[in-house]
């Protein structure tokens, strides 16, 4: 026997090996590694982070507030309102003489806030309802599915208009109404996943431990369907930003002087023919960057989390 082999068979080695705990990566740690291997996703996270920082701290760099009118340039916007470092209007002026930079910062703030808060909240609500429907089945499931079907038939633009006519137009109202419209997000997919999971034997095993339904749903089933919820959220957030932009574009969204990407794009588009293209270009660029990075992040999450590739 070689000396290496003697060592392998020695008692000390066995004891050492026994003491050394093997700690394997959890599913989430594993997914994180895979996510960070995806170059596009990492770049997108970076871009999105920049956007968020821009939205939070951008005002500190602006020389003007988003509602102030620069009377000195008003009326000469076509000739003097173009982006310029010298007069402090980095992104130029809009047709009312307001600083576009400040307005884009404010618009990013609103859009991202609405997108993340409303998007994630609605997915959470939909997922919880979906999980309960999937787990309990029967009458509760039938009622939820009935409501879902009815909800699909409600035209959401009209719902927006009616809601805002009754309750006024504010940021909080906007978020509320988007959550209401989107409560079905994630419902079907989580319901299906839970229905599949509840027939797995480890759920029976958990029931054998006398755990109540709450503990089974949240301790045993939820960790196993969380990846679906995460992927779904990454799809719903850009969708909600898009929805917010659409309703703002149509003029039923956010109230002036507050603004959002959609509202800015709408204004920019209406003045495009005057040759003041910067009024459209800046908000549109930010909007596109946000959408594309969110898309790639979602894609990366899907690749990292979808267990289909896993053994």
């Amino acid at each position: 026997m070689t000396s290496a082999k003697t060592h392998l068979n020695s008692k000390e080695f066995a004891e050492q090996a026994a003491e050394e705990m093997i700690t394997s990566r959890s599913f989430w740690a594993d997914a994180r590694v895979r996510f960070f291997k995806n170059r596009m996703a990492v770049v997108s996270v970076f871009m999105l982070l920049c956007l968020v920082l821009f939205a939070i701290f951008g005002h500190n760099f602006a020389k003007w507030s988003y509602e102030e009118i620069d009377w000195s340039i008003l009326g000469k916007i076509k000739t003097e309102g173009a982006p310029s470092i010298a007069n402090g209007h980095y992104f130029g002026l809009d047709e009312l003489g307001r600083d576009m930079f400040a307005r884009v910062v404010q618009g990013s703030r609103t859009s991202l806030l609405v997108g993340f808060v409303a998007g994630i909240t609605s997915v959470i609500i939909g997922s919880i309802i979906g999980a309960m429907a999937g787990y309990y089945g029967g009458r509760f499931d039938q009622i939820v599915m009935g409501m879902y079907t009815i909800w699909l038939a409600v035209p959401y633009i009209i719902f927006f208009v009616v809601w805002q006519a009754f309750f006024g137009r504010s940021l909080a109202q906007l978020i509320m109404v988007i959550i209401l419209v989107n409560w079905t997000a994630g419902l079907l997919i989580v319901r299906g996943q839970v229905m599949m999971m509840k027939n797995r034997e480890f759920v029976d095993a958990a029931r054998m431990l006398g755990l109540n339904d709450f503990a089974i749903i949240f301790r045993h089933i939820a960790p196993n369907v969380l990846w679906v919820v995460v992927i779904y959220s990454s799809m719903v957030v850009p969708e909600v930003i898009m929805m917010e932009s659409l309703v703002s574009f149509l003029g039923v969204g956010i109230q002036e002087p507050n603004t959002s990407w959609g509202a800015l794009i709408s204004e920019g588009a209406s003045t495009m023919t005057f040759g003041t293209l910067w009024q459209l270009a800046y908000p549109a660029a930010f909007f596109v960057i946000a959408q594309v990075s969110l898309y790639y992040i979602g894609d990366g999450l899907r690749d990292a989390l979808d267990p289909k590739d896993r053994r």
């Binding site: 959890s26 034997e201 480890f202 029976d204 095993a205 054998m208 431990l209 960790p223």
Partner: peptide, 24 residues
């Protein structure tokens, strides 16, 4: 039922599926 399960436990057919994949 809780009492019963203290004295009656069960093992299952599919060994891998009967363990929660997210728990050590």
């Amino acid at each position: 039922v809780l009492n019963l399960r203290k004295s009656i436990q069960m093992i299952f057919q599919d060994p891998v599926a009967s363990l929660n994949p997210r728990m050590t």
